[in-house]
Design a protein around this nucleic acid. Structure first.
Lengths: 227, 227
DNA sequence: TCGCTTATGTTGACGACGTCAACATCCGCG
DNA sequence: CGCGGATGTTGACGTCGTCAACATAAGCGA
């Protein structure tokens, strides 16, 4: 049924179908802004039968996980590039987060895929390990920045307390992730400009991480005397 | 159009199917922790034919939107209850956000439905207006709190600048929403306790909103001892 | 009371989907 | 050269969302 053009060899065995499927899926996600494309459509686009993907991915979730992993790698690389050469911790942190948000907005569907339920849903079946580890690598960039700021004394976090460091990183990550999601989902007020949102929200949160100017004075607003 | 009096026990044909469908869908979301149940399963559970829902919802998305609206109402009511009687703006803001996160964690699938792509996906077709307005009402609670803190001088925001107020609300909302999502998706570091996360992230962000303690001293964050 | 209109619910159908099983093809290694 | 396993194809099954046609019953004017 399929014609084979002699100049362009269409071998029975596709050279690297796994990679081709991931690339095609990325293109589909990007252009349709939907990760709910069908496996069959993906196979059609890749020029293979509707069951060929099953030789490389046990189920659809695994394919989506591989796509998400690419997204996490882009995120990590983008953040690393954004902070290159910035020595001041606060500036680096904001630059990093700003790039994070921008990358998310560049491809909302991919970002939603990376963080959405498509990967995390079924009860105990955790997200595919490939996406999990890629996500951890991206998160590590933020944590490294927090560590830098803690060591330099710019951030009000003890560099010797891993838990405090993780919590500080979680603070900035939460705000960054939340802002990205709210903008993507059109839930942030539409009359605010995206630049204003980024340049207000991120510094506000960074401000909350900053140490007071005098050295070695602990956070003093943070007590809860009642109950 | 039909006018439905809200407390009508047995109005029509087989009862108030619309309400029954929403309730059943809520139960399904809650117990399966999945919003990707089928319309047919929903109809089965409700004891009607697989097409009966189409008399009340033009498509699946509309049904999901109605379910999400219930979730937003719960969120709004919970936040309002949480801040009742708290006069100090910072405490009220944190209490509000804390309840927000807790409610999200109480029913992760419902939260994901409220904010996920199920409602916002198809290109220009925005999320169902019912969910949209319910979400705006929930957001308004946060914005009211920001206004209170701005008026009292606790927050470093001018109460006369609507844009600044909206941006401040967006800051705390981003962090709250992001934290909720990260915990739900098991992306926050698993060795951190949920209490620690909530009680660190939210105060950190609130700290970024606070006016400096000393009277009439401007934000002095733009400085660092070393370069 | 009757009979019309209209809202509501049912049945059946269609194409598309994810996935399984059986079969076909081809590469690499003995 | 020949074979085994990796890779790709075909066909099938059950389910899904949605449409169209039909059935039922409640409200309402006569």
């Amino acid at each position: 049924m399929q014609k084979i053009t002699s100049a362009d060899p269409a071998p029975y065995h596709h050279g690297d179908l796994r990679r081709a499927l991931i690339d095609t899926a990325l293109a589909l996600v990007t252009e349709e802004q939907e990760w709910s494309f069908s496996l069959r459509e993906l196979a059609r686009r890749a020029g293979v039968s509707h069951n060929a993907p099953y030789n490389h991915f046990a189920e659809k979730r695994d394919l989506l996980g591989a796509v998400a992993a690419v997204g996490f790698e882009r995120l990590r690389d983008g953040m690393l590039a954004a902070i290159a050469g910035i020595v001041e911790p606060e500036k680096a942190l904001i630059a990093c987060a700003r790039t994070y948000v921008r990358l998310g907005l560049d491809n909302p569907a991919l970002y939603r895929l990376m963080f959405g339920q498509a990967l995390a849903n079924t009860e105990y079946a955790d997200r595919p390990t490939i996406a999990r580890s890629a996500g951890a690598e991206a998160r590590a960039v933020l944590e490294q920045l927090i560590l830098r700021g803690a060591l330099s004394g710019d951030f009000a976090v003890s560099p010797d307390d891993p838990k405090a460091l993780a919590l500080a990183a979680l603070s900035i990550w939460s705000a960054t992730h939340g802002l990205t999601m709210l903008i993507i989902d059109h839930l942030a007020q539409p009359d605010l400009s995206i630049d204003d949102m980024i340049e207000t929200v991120l510094p506000t949160v960074a401000q909350g991480l900053m140490a007071p100017l005098g050295p070695a004075s602990p956070r003093q607003c943070e007590k809860r005397p009642q109950e």
